[in-house]
Amino acid sequence: MSDETPATEPRPPIPLLDKHLCFTLYAASRAITGAYRPLLEPLGLTYPQYLVMITLGEHGSLTVKELVALLQLDYGTVTPLIKRLEANGLLQRRRQADDERVVHVALTDDGLALHTRLSDVPPVIAEAAGLTYDEVTTLQNLARRLTANIDGHTTGVPTAKK
């Protein structure tokens, strides 16, 4: 090796699968959304539809743009959810009079009635999780911080070469 060639540090080995934070979070997400399935199916809802129902029940009428932002999803994901819930009579869409590009969504009377029944779901999920209130709060705070950190950071991972 010449004096002009910089020494390179050996790369650390890739961690085992169960040591990857991404996999741990992915597995936890799949487990918790899977726990919702048997609770939501009798109500005619999928987990993403449940999130829309919860959000509209909490906020009332929202624009699609606001709903997209609150759910942290894209329009291509939210629009079919809205259409399906509307077809099922659970929400209604209306265009804003002064700007027809703006669409408001709100729960119908049937949607509000179903929203009331959704209050039975969280206690069952909490029991399945087996965590204390403080543990859930800590986990949520860490997950929110992780999300904000990742959203605000460029990883610097090189892209694959073709």
Rank of each mutant, 00 (worst) to 15 (best):
S2I: 01
D3Y: 13
E4Q: 13
P6E: 10
P6N: 12
T8R: 12
E9Y: 09
P12S: 11
P12C: 04
P13G: 08
P15S: 09
H20C: 08
C22P: 00
S29V: 03
A31P: 00
G34W: 07
P38E: 03
L39A: 09
L40N: 06
L40C: 08
Y47Q: 10
Q49L: 02
Y50C: 05
Y50F: 14
T55W: 05
T55D: 02
T55M: 08
L56Y: 02
L56Q: 01
G57L: 02
G60I: 03
S61P: 03
L62D: 00
L67Y: 02
V68E: 06
L71R: 07
D74A: 05
Y75G: 01
P80S: 07
P80A: 08
I82Y: 04
K83Q: 10
R84S: 15
G89W: 00
L90P: 06
Q92E: 15
R93S: 11
R93L: 13
R95V: 09
H104T: 02
T108P: 03
A113H: 10
A113I: 10
R117L: 04
L118R: 00
L118C: 09
S119V: 07
V121G: 06
P123Y: 09
P123S: 09
E127W: 09
A128L: 13
A128W: 05
G130R: 08
E135Q: 14
V136Q: 10
T137F: 07
L142T: 11
L142Y: 11
R144Y: 14
A148T: 15
D151R: 14
T154A: 13
T155K: 10
T155M: 07
P158H: 07
P158C: 10
A160M: 11
K161A: 14
